[in-house]
Simulated assay, not measured.
Amino acid sequence: MDIYQLVVAVLFGSIGLGYFVYGVRQSNLGFRLTGVALLIYPYFFDSIWTLLAIGVGLLLVPRFIDL
């Protein structure tokens, strides 16, 4: 893992924590699940471009899917 992958993982992980806390406080299942996904997904992918693509895609999930 190089420094760029680490920075992207920390960035999306911190955003995921924010999504999760927001989802718990607002009782919104979509934000909670997206937050957990943002926290976990960097462990499974190595490519920086894959991390960025999946991270941006997950950030947009609560905007288009309302649970």
Rank of each mutant, 00 (worst) to 15 (best):
I3R: 13
Y4E: 07
Y4M: 07
L6N: 06
L6K: 10
V8E: 03
V8C: 03
V8H: 01
V8T: 15
A9E: 03
A9G: 08
G13C: 02
S14V: 14
S14N: 10
S14P: 03
I15R: 00
G16N: 02
G16L: 05
G18A: 12
G18F: 05
Y19L: 00
F20G: 05
V21S: 06
Y22A: 15
Y22P: 06
Y22K: 14
Y22H: 14
G23S: 09
V24S: 05
V24H: 06
V24P: 04
Q26I: 09
Q26D: 06
S27V: 13
S27G: 06
N28K: 11
L29R: 13
L29F: 11
F31H: 13
L33M: 13
T34D: 00
T34P: 01
G35S: 10
G35F: 09
V36C: 04
L38C: 01
L38H: 01
L39M: 12
Y41A: 00
P42T: 12
F44M: 10
F44C: 07
F45G: 13
F45V: 14
F45I: 08
D46H: 12
I48P: 00
I48R: 00
T50I: 15
L51R: 01
A53Y: 02
I54D: 03
G55F: 00
V56L: 14
V56Y: 06
V56T: 09
V56D: 03
G57N: 05
L59A: 06
L59I: 08
L60F: 14
V61I: 12
V61L: 15
P62T: 10
I65V: 09
D66P: 11
